[in-house]
Design a binder for these strands. Structure first.
Lengths: 187, 187
DNA sequence: TACTTATTAGTACCAACTACTAAGACCAAG
DNA sequence: CTTGGTCTTAGTAGTTGGTACTAATAAGTA
């Protein structure tokens, strides 16, 4: 099999280091079958610190930071809302979390962002997710800003169908179709 | 202040490094007001590894702690695993999980539990969620114990289809069909 | 004083980098 | 086809925090 192209390699690099932050540039170069310089350029581009710094940050008690990244905080910042029509939120993955937790959590955070946005766009006090069809289209890299857009497709007195597309730049990383259930205040 | 004699210094050195393993020989030399060589002889005599090795061993411990902590945090406790076949986890909804917006947390945590379970059931180092079709069947209350069951429906060399059903007692609260993508890695 | 232990100085070497320059490879458009 | 851009590789100098070793010196003791 041929080598990966740059973007793929960089995505895989993030992934690799998230599961195993103890790899040297040399080992990574052999793994991806590229030169050590390429790995270093990749790290530079992705803002990934060198081995010793990675290890040091793991060793120091960054576990508190990581622990604090619970799901309810990861809903992203809602930047625009047009009630019952559409909404936008932004979620930036911080580098301190990514190495350890990112792998497991990626799917969960993208879903959480989208789900929260769906709740926010509906102008009702109680909004529940009923069902969803979701796709994780593309990997998210370190420090990527995930911009999520929710658009209400249809809305009855109890159910809203909302389409969500999350992008990093121009690249779609996640999309989903959410069916939200809500109750009017006096129910 | 006079310098310590050898035995005292070495005892203090062990103490110092046990509370702060991040000190370089240079810093230690200044601290004890001896030459760097003395510190190195001390470490040699006491079988204390160099800074980087000390940090690495701390990092490895820390990583395991964090991993189990964050996994437990997100997934609940995985109680049974039959690799590549099925797995079960239990997640108890605490107040903190429902803290801001009950409904938001509910969806995200149920999804997170299911998603994590799908990652755990596949015996591969890197497992990513590709897509999912999920249903939030019934509401979950605080202190409910959500028992999630994942069953691998089919599995190729790259993709696994997993069915997840989450229940509180006998009542189904969530179900989902997950398409997981994984990579074999010989490292 | 001679002997032993403790300390210091200094050299060569290493891993795993950073930061930089320069050149070649590859593809895409004018 | 050639020019330009990105991508990749090569190579050098310098850094940190060491190891491993030799040699000289200082301090304490018989």
């Amino acid at each position: 099999m041929g080598k990966y192209k740059k973007s793929t390699r960089q995505a895989l690099l993030v992934d690799k280091l998230s599961t195993n932050p103890f790899m040297t540039d040399d080992q990574l170069a052999q793994y991806f079958d590229v030169s050590i310089q390429t790995i270093r350029l990749d790290r530079l581009a992705l803002n990934i610190p060198e081995l010793r710094e990675r290890i040091k940050s793991v060793a120091k008690e960054e576990k508190n930071k990581i622990r604090s990244l619970s799901l309810q905080e990861v809903t992203g910042d809602i930047t625009e809302v047009e009630m019952n029509k559409r909404a936008t939120s932004v979620f930036e993955v911080e580098e301190s979390h990514t190495f350890l937790k990112y792998n497991v959590a990626r799917g969960q955070y993208l879903f959480a962002q989208a789900n929260s946005l769906c709740v926010a766009v509906i102008d009702q006090p109680v909004v529940l997710t009923k069902s969803a069809k979701i796709n994780f289209v593309h990997q998210v890299k370190v420090q990527d800003k995930v911009v999520s857009n929710a658009t209400v497709q249809s809305m009855t007195s109890k159910i809203a169908i909302i389409d969500v597309v999350s992008k990093v730049g121009d690249i779609v990383v996640f999309d989903g179709l959410f069916e939200m259930y809500f109750k009017k205040e006096d129910d």
